[in-house]
Amino acid sequence: MKQAFGAGANTFAKLSLLGGGLFTVLILGLLFVLDHSPYTRGPIGVAVNQPVRFSHQLHSGVLNIDCRYCHISAEQGAYGGIPDTHTCMSCHSQIATYSELLEPVRTSYATGEYLVWNKVHNIAQHVYFNHSAHVNAGFACETCHGRVDQMPLVWQHQSMTMSWCLECHREPERFIRTYDQVYTFGEPAPENQIDVGLQLVAAQGIDVSRLSNCSICHR
């Protein structure tokens, strides 16, 4: 009777074991890469177009206007906050009143229609990030948002992955600053950042052992 499998079948079977393993690893690897890729995370370093070409480089960088002048809810609430056009008009009622670029702002202020800006940072929705908890404890805008004072149009600066969050949640002393440095850009960290950081962490009453609990960020 003829054999159903030839002489090479055993080798093939063994190879297929190896191949199957490799295939599984490949699929899992692809899923991991996809999960961390700009396709799902939002592109890093790519400027997002906006209905009004507002330049942070000019307003924050050149004019040195404090972040809070417009993004006040970062200090007062959970959401970072986009200013209403009343805020824009508190200067632009007098400055660049002729500017065509500002037409949507003036229209919004006059009619009460919202000026809807495009979101740059899309954090996963099972993460409950609170801006005021971070800035009031001494974590600077710059640490997560990068040199916004050098961005003509804003782009995402950090990956916003959970492992990135945990870098700081496990060792907040590496990033914490004094309160007067929270809304500044480009100030070099002190040489003894870790020592200063540990003192600041203690002074703020931050319990580092709790910072990597799931429920700190996920609810």
Partner: peptide, 23 residues
């Protein structure tokens, strides 16, 4: 410094950066 200084200046002389810009 966040809300008033842009117009009134850090020392309060009314010569903040926005005034320099034309306000």
């Amino acid at each position: 410094n966040a809300f008033c200084a842009p117009c009134h200046g850090y020392a309060g002389y009314g010569n903040g950066v926005i005034v320099v810009e034309g306000f």
